[in-house]
């Protein structure tokens, strides 16, 4: 193993981590403030990717498509909030899990009917499509750097929004004491809708960023939603900081696991067995971490102070 490979894989891990953070941050916002378990977040991730793909073909420009697709995904989020989520705020988590699981089925089938099963690949402008040479002669696909940049920007934006704006203040207040906020004459219903829409836009953004790498496809939300839940549980539900740390951690573990675990295994078992076991074991790693964290800190790494 040489140093440059390690650096590249670390960057890949950070990139995956930031993508996970985009999905997880929306999830943890909705969860922390609305106390709502939203599996349908996976569907919004997929919807964002498909809308962006369609717009890229219609407009011929990926960046423009993203800018337009973001508010559209937020609108889809608003519709979900009005029709399904709102009546469930007062219910238990079990009801929320089941209803939003139903939403995933509905959205995936609709996407199949509208866009076909094949999935859509998203063409990038030439400026984003090549490779960039980093100091030290390491080459990395430019678009992966774009994802890292966009992820960091979104994280910074969220941090600012939650900590330094009036909306953020209401969000924090609403999370700790709902009745108090509405007693102050704030329209709590509107606040919740805004938070939900923001979460939807963040999930959609993640989908739009991954689509040019893989593609917009029907099942794309399935695998990421469970990982995103692991992220927010490990980080501590409702904690933006926790979601960020856990997302990067899990992105790194997953990528480095996939890169190096088979070499490690080959030290103790036949190379055939190592190659077969390695992918599954590296997939298992993140769940082992989650169980370990919860065994010692049942509220996650960074539990929010006021609940």
């Amino acid at each position: 193993m040489d140093a440059s490979l390690l650096i590249i894989q670390t960057l890949n891990g950070v990139q995956l981590g930031l993508l996970l953070f985009l999905v997880a941050s929306g999830l943890t916002l909705v969860f922390g403030i609305l106390d709502f378990v939203n599996l349908a977040h996976a569907a919004l991730y997929m919807v964002g990717a498909f809308i962006c793909a369609s717009l890229t073909y219609a407009l011929g420009n990926f960046v423009l498509a993203v800018l337009l697709a973001l508010p559209l995904t937020a609108v889809v989020g608003l519709v979900v909030e009005r029709t399904v989520a709102r009546p469930l705020y007062s219910r238990g988590h079990l009801d929320q899990v089941l209803a939003t699981f139903g939403l995933i089925l509905v959205f995936e089938t609709l996407a199949h009917m509208i866009w076909g099963p094949a999935g859509m690949s998203v063409p990038l402008p030439d400026s984003l499509n090549g490779q960039t040479t980093l100091p030290g002669g390491i080459q990395i696909p430019t678009f992966r750097l774009v994802i890292i940049g966009a992820g960091l920007a979104a994280a910074g934006g969220l941090f600012w929004l939650v900590n330094y704006t009036r909306l953020g203040m209401l969000i924090r207040a609403g999370a700790s004491n709902r009745t108090m906020v509405s007693a102050l004459g704030i329209n709590i219903q509107l606040l919740f809708s805004l938070v939900f829409a923001l979460g939807a836009a963040l999930a959609g953004l993640a989908g739009m960023l991954i689509a040019p790498i893989t593609e917009a496809s029907i099942g794309m939300g399935h695998s990421i939603i469970i990982t995103a839940f692991v992220v927010i549980i490990v980080g501590g539900i409702g904690s933006m900081k926790g979601a960020f740390v856990a997302a990067i951690l899990i992105g790194l573990i997953d990528t480095l696991g996939r890169s190096f675990i088979d070499d490690l295994f080959k030290l103790v078992m036949s190379s055939e067995a190592a190659e077969n076991a390695a992918p599954a074991i590296s997939a298992m790693l993140i769940y082992i971490i989650m169980a370990a964290v919860l065994a010692f800190r049942p509220q996650g790494l960074f539990p929010p102070k006021v609940r």
Partner: peptide, 13 residues
């Protein structure tokens, strides 16, 4: 159904 589609780590290797 939830196949891995991001091959960044493998391609780098």
């Amino acid at each position: 159904a939830d196949a891995q589609l991001d091959f960044s780590a493998e391609l780098a290797k």
